[in-house]
Design a protein around this nucleic acid. Sequence first.
DNA 1: AAATGTGTTACAATAGAAGTAGAACAAAAG
DNA 2: CTTTTGTTCTACTTCTATTGTAACACATTT
Lengths: 129, 129
Amino acid sequence: MFIEIQTNSSVPIYLQLAQQLIEGIARGELKPGDSLPSVRAFAADLGMNMHTVNKAYHYLEEKEFIQIVAKSGVIIQPNGIPKATAQEQQKLAEQIRPLIAEGLVLKLSEEEMVVMVRQLVQNIKEGTS
Amino acid sequence: MFIEIQTNSSVPIYLQLAQQLIEGIARGELKPGDSLPSVRAFAADLGMNMHTVNKAYHYLEEKEFIQIVAKSGVIIQPNGIPKATAQEQQKLAEQIRPLIAEGLVLKLSEEEMVVMVRQLVQNIKEGTS
DNA sequence: AAATGTGTTACAATAGAAGTAGAACAAAAG
DNA sequence: CTTTTGTTCTACTTCTATTGTAACACATTT
């Protein structure tokens, strides 16, 4: 899968990488059991430091989207990623909340924001920007 | 209006303050032309440093939600806050996108996320958590 | 006019975290 | 045994958040 990093973005490289991998999973391009490149190989491939890739991997591991198997490599959660717990969903909502509030202040209607979300879902699934 | 700061949160104080003011505007509790406390008074009231309040104010000013009028204080955008431009909406979408992607990975359906957004809109308008 | 109160801006300083990177290490794989 | 792999330790630089102090602007009071 293609990874595209914007070095002058305010969002750190490791996060950009992690987010793009998340989108890869969301879109089904990365399936349970698939293996990801080693930190070194990936880093060399992307022209970044090993630690940056490592950090992205650990970020994803903490969310339990992947498994890091010591000395052997990294694979997408092989038994499939379980559905969000109430707690995870709550946490997600908390993160979205200030953005919705901002939308409201900018006079976006509930419907407009719903449309925005639907659009985003489509874009992610299609891999379009 | 009622401000509640959590000092042990990972989200910085000035941002918590700004976000709560934004919610105040969204919920209509703060109307165009309303004035906000001076940096010093507000800081004393909330038990924080004036610069922290100042930073929140400037954050909101940059978004053009308020006007900082030198010497006379701070007021909510008196002519009403204009509807989001295409660019602002785009930017909002960009910020929401990684969260939606994460939701998808956690097997939340498009409908579930739409419901989540509608719920958030209600909560914000009601001022509930 | 001078003083005082109220409020903003500017400069400084600090502590801490974040982002990125190099080198050495131990275990697994081949 | 050699190569590969994730881990660990260290290190450096840059941001960030917060606070402190002082200077400045203006209106009102004395």
